[in-house]
Amino acid sequence: MAEKASPSSNSISLKTVDGKIFKVSPAIANQMLTIQPLIKDSDSSTIISLPDVAAFHLTKIIEYLEGKPAAAPSAVDAFEAQFVKDLSPEELKGLLIAVGYLKVNGLVDLMANTVAKLIENKSVEYVRKFFGVVNDFTPAEEAKCRQEHAWAFDGVDED
């Protein structure tokens, strides 16, 4: 998982699945719980590979960890709302997977909340498409399941 690179400052090097290398401070890297144990044993020449994280996602994660206000909850709320505002559904899903893999402090809940809000009032078809789920019910099973959940099908937004 770790390989040697040219020594630099005190920073930790993270390599994304698409080959980009990011240098982050230990304070930032420590908030990614999955890589925490690797940081202790690493020196400045270590590169930690992140097989499930693309550069776009790591950029956003670092943006979140560096930008999140330390103090007032209202400031945090405003920052988080801004953070997720312009993400497309596809980006949201990718980021959820990345932060779930890295176990990023605070961001797992934020992404899960944001995805929850996105799918909450959507149709079955939208949710399938969003998660990339193959419908493995037979037509008869699906009809029965829809019948059992008939109460769930009003108030659905347009996809």
Partner: peptide, 12 residues
């Protein structure tokens, strides 16, 4: 209600 619709998505 949203969870009820998720039931119909797939077996998983």
């Amino acid at each position: 209600k949203a969870l009820g619709r998720c039931c119909v998505v797939s077996r998983r």
